[in-house]
């Protein structure tokens, strides 16, 4: 019996020689237990060593392998070929990012946005190690825990039409992370963080399409984080203007 195969239509772009991206078809062995990333690795190993793509963990934790699979942002390490077999599978780099090479995107814009929300704990009163940790009750932890599960895979950026139309929008993952720190009882950087999170490019840029939460492989629900961020920003605004003496 001839081996079953499936066709991968892969978008290529080699900056040295191609002026525009184009599609290249590869016929790959079909295995029920193969994911799209396995097929790409097979191509790289046996067919075409010039094909570039990013991956690392192969188990949905590193967030490197996000690509457009048949037009949807997916982690290629947990997207099985059997979902599409026998139809061909189109693989493109994540949309809403510039293309570095083949399936590799430029993540510079994303990293800039992440930095803007200051995703670390800001303390005004710093404890020395001898004084012990900053304690937190389980209830305080659960306020933000879900929003801290992000793996920076950027699928939500590819899903978001606002990111596509307004590149300055901070976007789902960065805002979810900003809100995660706003909700953290150990954090004391509320004002400086709110300046970014509560800005026009921040939560107020969001029109609540909600697609970020649909595609998120970690159920971070960035759309929820952003809407809760809008509530926090509104309360903050009232506090600033109605009770300027009540500033923390």
């Amino acid at each position: 019996m001839a081996e079953e195969t499936i066709v991968l239509r892969v978008q290529r772009y080699r900056p040295e020689q191609d002026s525009d991206p184009y599609f290249q078809d590869y016929e790959v062995p079909y295995r029920k237990d193969w994911v799209v990333l396995d097929a790409l690795n097979w191509i790289k190993e046996y067919k075409d060593g010039t094909l570039s793509f990013r991956w690392s963990c192969r188990m949905g934790v590193c967030g490197s392998c996000g690509m457009m699979v048949n037009g949807r942002p997916r982690l290629t390490c947990n997207t099985f070929l059997r979902e599409f077999y026998p139809n061909p599978i189109t693989v493109e780099p994540l949309v809403n990012f510039d293309i570095e090479r083949d399936l590799v995107i430029c993540m510079d814009t994303f990293l800039e946005k992440l930095k803007k929300v200051k995703p670390w704990i800001i303390r005004r009163e710093v404890k020395s190690p001898e004084e012990g940790p900053y304690n937190q009750t389980p209830a305080q932890l659960y306020r933000y825990k879900q929003f801290s599960m992000c793996i920076n895979c950027m699928l939500c950026y590819a899903a978001c039409p606002v990111v596509g139309m307004h590149p300055e929008f901070l976007g789902p993952a960065a805002l979810a992370l900003g809100v995660r720190y706003l909700l953290d009882s150990r954090d004391q950087g509320w004002n400086e963080r709110m300046e970014e999170v509560g800005s026009h490019e921040g939560v107020w840029g969001c029109t609540f399409v909600g697609e970020c939460s649909e595609v998120c492989p970690k159920h971070v629900d960035p759309a929820a984080a952003i809407q809760q961020g809008k509530v926090l920003a509104t309360l903050d605004w009232f506090k600033r203007w109605l009770m300027p003496w009540g500033q923390k």
């Binding site: 900056p15 040295e16 525009d20 949309v95 809403n96 510039d98 293309i99 570095e100 430029c106």
Partner: peptide
């Protein structure tokens, strides 16, 4: 060589 390719949003 870096020559990022920009796609416009449909």
């Amino acid at each position: 060589m870096r020559r990022p390719y920009h796609r416009s949003y449909p």
